[in-house]
Design a protein around this nucleic acid. Structure first.
Lengths: 238, 238
DNA sequence: ATACGTCCGTATGATTGCGAACACAATCCG
DNA sequence: CGGATTGTGTTCGCAATCATACGGACGTAT
């Protein structure tokens, strides 16, 4: 495991020039988040940087309320990027839901300012943008072509990559929304993984027992996403 | 129709400062493309700007050869963006396939150079990046939640938006790959749309007969994607 | 302790889409 | 003109998933 890196804070913030970090400080606050951070149709005036252990799901919803997760962001990244890389933001019709714990909030306008002026800041955030876009297209393929069980395994591993823990506290109903499938389908997939000893679970709880077994059981997307993330993590320390 | 805009060339190139356009000229060439432009695993050293009438599909493939379209790019955009917004490009594991006709090729390193130095160039390309990311997440949702028939209708309208023609020359086999479904499914969907007079078709050919009927038959994604595109088109003429 | 809300396992039938196969039609080519 | 190739329509059986529903388990508040 090459992941013995600073296991706290946010990698992007950590990598910012100290000068910039100080300049952002007045608008930066830490929050403990527990639910929705941004609803669609609303122009965000903040950007968020999850800390280690916090994971945020970027989701899209239909008019009828169905939803799917487009990607996840942990301490390697940020969200509301689009309001930083473009003008004040036409609209961010993506909504975000939280999974775990703690984020830094920075004023979007201020962040945008530094993004425009500072090449180092720009390179960092754009590098993440590229990573995220890649992740989303991978998920698009996965959502279309792979089975529930494999996608569940993938999802668990993706989250594990970002929290370094094998314990997850979430409901299967929540999972069904993330995967964009029906709840009973999740129930069946969870049971299938459990009988093979890959995970164990109870109410509001899933525990990964056999990490590499899960990887083998999941689709190729798991390894691809993991590799991309690791490469990004190391590239940040150029 | 507010689409009485310069119906030729590429909108991004057109919007670049003349000075930059001249600087790019030495590396710019026009091509008539007819097939694959970039295979995965390969670091692209060119970026491409489709002209009006040309449409390129950005696709992802699994190890086993199955593929899905992540999004399309017409004369409103470009592809291989990731090699411009980030460093020389780790790898672009996306592959691209062509649908229609004519593109301008520009050296990636040169483009990157101007992207770094010129704020106007940067704003333009980043604006498109944001549009594209939004398109991909919309498609991700659509791929997961909507039926073949609706997605086919959507796809036809998306392409129509970019070529201003109601005639498409393509095989149903190709379509099945884009939609990520099996071919007989396309055959059935095509027939279903035809009996209602929305399209007509023959070998290698589909013709849109009732554009607004198709829109009604398709999922909400059609309208959303169309609106995003129109807004982008107008925003380029700030 | 009881009651209620939430969460989970499971069952059922309906439906959609897959996988494979085949025949026919159109096109190309010698 | 006849054969090969490619694209298309269709079929059949099967697997996965949906839609719905019910009952039980758990946790918490009263």
């Amino acid at each position: 495991m090459a992941t013995t890196r600073i296991p706290t804070g946010n990698l992007l913030l950590n990598a910012l020039p100290p000068r910039v970090l100080r300049a952002l400080a007045p608008s930066e606050e830490d929050h403990i988040i527990t639910d929705v951070l941004l609803s669609p149709e609303q122009t965000p005036e903040s950007v968020f940087f999850p800390h280690f252990g916090a994971v945020v799901s970027i989701i899209r919803a239909t008019e009828s309320g169905a939803m799917v997760e487009a990607g996840v962001v942990g301490h390697e990244g940020m969200f509301n990027i689009h309001t930083v890389i473009t003008t004040p933001a036409p609209t961010g019709s993506e909504a975000l839901v939280q999974i775990d714990g703690r984020v830094s909030r920075v004023d979007a306008a201020l962040m945008r300012e530094h993004f425009r002026k500072d090449e180092r800041v720009r390179d960092l955030l754009l590098s993440f943008t590229s990573l995220f876009l890649h992740q989303v297209t991978q998920n698009l393929l996965c959502n279309r072509l792979h089975a529930i069980e494999q996608r569940l395994a993938k999802w668990l591993l993706i989250i594990r990559d970002r929290i370094a823990s094998d314990e997850l506290h979430l409901t299967q109903d929540f999972l069904s929304h993330m995967l964009g499938v029906h709840r009973p389908g999740v129930s069946i997939a969870v049971s299938a993984l459990e009988v093979d000893g890959l995970i164990s679970h109870s109410r509001n709880y899933i525990r990964i027992r056999d990490h590499s077994g899960l990887l083998a059981r999941s689709c190729e997307c798991s390894a691809a996403l993991h590799a991309d993330l690791e490469q990004f993590r190391t590239s940040i320390f150029d």
